[in-house]
Amino acid sequence: MASQLRPGTVAVSLAVLCTGIGVIVTTMAAPTSPMYAKVGPTAFPYAIGACLCGLGVLLFLDAWRGRWQAEATERPDERLDMKAVGLVVAGFLAAMALVGQAGFILAATALFTLATLAFGERRVWLSAPLGFLIALSAYTVFAKLLGLRMGDGLIERLL
């Protein structure tokens, strides 16, 4: 049986177990209100934490016995393209960094361009201007015409 053991599934089951324990510990640390309530604010967190612990254990058993049929275990030789995932993450991080100062349009353009790169579109000269146009039109429609306040920025100031 041990030959079918996949480290990924074991890690996931342990993460669920730890989340459950974390929920219970956090709830125990929470101050209790003296207010009138037959069932206080801690009852449901305890129950949910306990259930997550139990589910974590059951998941661990599934993983241990190799009964966990999943995308990640079925085709372990076909690894996830971490570079592509990383590029989308980078897109989000760039958007988060840019959105405050440079504004929504440039942030969304960065997100768009990096996401197209992740999908294998290497023609940045094509995707970047296209992303800019999409972000610009989204901004124009929502911020200018509908009055949704999407913040200020370098391009926004020119509009």
Binding site: A108, T116, I134
Partner: peptide
């Protein structure tokens, strides 16, 4: 690439 990048925007 464009469909999903657009969805993200």
């Amino acid at each position: 690439p464009y469909l999903f990048a657009g969805i993200l925007v």
